[in-house]
Design a protein around this nucleic acid. Structure first.
Lengths: 157, 157
DNA sequence: CGACCGACTGCACACATTGACCAGCCGATA
DNA sequence: TATCGGCTGGTCAATGTGTGCAGTCGGTCG
């Protein structure tokens, strides 16, 4: 179930050069095309690869500011807050967490000034008690998966 | 430069059904194939679409636990800390932020117990003064971009 | 030991898609 | 009005895809 070495190499290859097809991948990996197809089918059907959606840069859409907000929620309002935040386009993701806050969400905005509008919209909801925001200045490690895939593949050798 | 309505529909279409090609997309959007090709080329070359990498689920790799760690950094150690964290596969992303902490990173681990090992590795570095970790319990809004694209497209109508 | 099983290889085929071109049309603009 | 960029609708050769098949290999089970 885990992921073997060939799966790992395949995922890394696809991550590095997404435009190559099954045929080219089989050439690079030195295996038959059918093998790559079978592996890909399996990886996708068991959920290891969720899909190949376009990786869109919010900055290019006019939202260059990213921030993380820690939210404190009124007891029993979780579901309502989730629904509320799900309806705000600038909320890119939302997690419920342990620790000081109850939820952590990633926000984007058109500018620092615009961020105020977004935060107002986020916290302008009854179930939210308090919000603490951290604006992102730099992103030294953009969201990545390759090193983890390599490690996972190595572990199952 | 921003993104017009057709761009928005194209991105949303690709996000919803990544496997369709240029030809099918042109049929769905009701425009000529060359138009879709030209739009795609432009979106990719100006960075709006970074690529079409596989969307890998860390849980399927054996890393079902996600956490966010807020780090406090010793003055002037930023670059070293960045390099250190960049070398840890379980660090999926890293941001420098304003606010209470200096950096925020997303971590994954094989289990809650394993998370301790990851955190030890992350903070086991001279420049890091303190770390505060929040374990993710639920993910009501997984990382998404479609609503934002729709809004951006609408704004530029 | 022999049968079985899953995974991989190597090959074949029909079909769809891609990338590249081209001429022509149209609306905005100088 | 002349020009320009973007879109259309068409063609072409080359490539990739989905599919099926027979054969090989290593491991497992009775």
């Amino acid at each position: 179930m885990a992921i073997d070495h060939l799966d790992g190499r395949l995922i890394v290859l696809l991550a590095r050069e997404p435009r190559i097809g099954v045929l080219e991948a089989s050439r690079r990996l030195g295996v038959a095309r059918g093998t790559v197809q079978a592996r890909l089918d399996r990886l996708q059907s068991n959920g290891a690869i969720r899909g190949f959606g376009p990786d869109v840069d919010p900055a290019a859409l006019g939202y260059p500011v990213t921030a993380f907000a820690t939210l404190e929620i009124k007891q029993g309002q979780g579901a309502d807050v989730r629904a509320h935040l799900g309806g705000v386009p600038e909320v890119l993701e939302l997690h419920t967490t342990t620790g000081h806050g109850d939820m952590l969400c990633r926000l984007v905005a058109r500018s620092n000034a615009d961020l105020q509008r977004v935060i107002d919209r986020v916290v302008g909801f009854d179930g939210i008690v308090r919000a603490s925001t951290a604006i992102v200045m730099e992103n030294p490690v953009p969201l990545r998966i390759i090193p983890l895939v390599e490690q996972a593949a190595q572990d199952s050798d």
